[in-house]
Design a binder for these strands. Structure first.
Ligand code: SF4
Ligand code: SF4
Lengths: 131, 131
DNA sequence: CCAACTGCGACCGTTCTAGTCCGAGTTTAG
DNA sequence: CTAAACTCGGACTAGAACGGTCGCAGTTGG
């Protein structure tokens, strides 16, 4: 349960690889995948999503690729996870999708939310720079 | 991803219900399920596993049931989660089961382990008593 | 003996995840 | 202008994890 998805994991690896890069330069997803040993067709997806969220910048075209949109120290693990896995909350009854007949009288949800905030604070405390 | 399984959730609810109980008294799983609105056949399983791990005591036989084995303040959320979900670690490559071709040269595993420890410390900080 | 429990494992349907594939749009090089 | 090397987005499939149910054996108290 308390485990990163593969996507988040790969995202972190990719971001780390991206962080030592001349400004203006870019790395293609394919290149990254080969260099990091990630599944070839997974990397573009992850990167695209990160680009969508504004964590990395992308340039299209022949010599295109990705580069960090911000300083490595400004991108927290929490943010990456939120983008790639979503942030549903610690309790199973997330976003009202997962139903629970206890949801009306539940006395456990609030404490769990508090815990969740603390956990996120921990994840927020670590940035790509110090991976 | 950063989400409790249903099992852990139910476990916490059950433990909370169990905590205000006369010493020597016991609550049957069925009774708990009815009282808490949990799926009927799920509760015995969760309780049994908690008993196995020594978090609750069980008494068999006709007037049997479960009661806390320790003070509510001595049972942490982390422990419950570990018993019911296992504690694989934050990184996907858990227990050597999930393979990853990067595992030899991975420079991200250690930082993730550190993060994981911090997260567990947070979960350790909350007990059943203060759910 | 009988009734009410725990304990344990097998079982199945559903959901989530990992990974692959393909078509469309974009930019640069020649 | 054309072709190559990219990104982008969605659709799709196989597999694993999860939630929940069932049934039976063992135990205890009346
Ligand atoms: S028991 Fe409470 S916390 Fe758990 S899923 Fe139901 S409402 Fe949410
Ligand atoms: S990339 Fe590193 S942390 Fe992630 S699964 Fe592979 S070895 Fe583990």
């Amino acid at each position: 349960m308390i485990r990163l998805s593969r996507k988040s994991d790969y995202g972190l690896v990719a971001l780390k690889a991206l962080r030592g890069l001349e400004p203006g330069d870019a790395l293609s997803a394919r290149e990254l995948a080969a260099q990091l040993g990630l599944p070839g067709d997974m990397t573009p997806k992850v990167l695209a999503r990160l680009a969508q969220a504004g964590l990395v910048e992308s340039s299209m075209g022949k010599a295109g690729g990705y580069r960090l949109a911000r300083a490595a120290g400004d991108i927290s693990v929490a943010e990456v996870v939120r983008v790639l896995d979503g942030e549903p909350g610690l309790a199973p009854c997330r976003e009202g999708i997962l139903e629970c007949n206890r949801i009306e009288t539940c006395d456990i949800k609030h404490p769990l939310d508090n815990l969740h905030q603390e956990v996120m604070r921990v994840l927020q405390g670590m940035s790509i720079a110090q991976l």
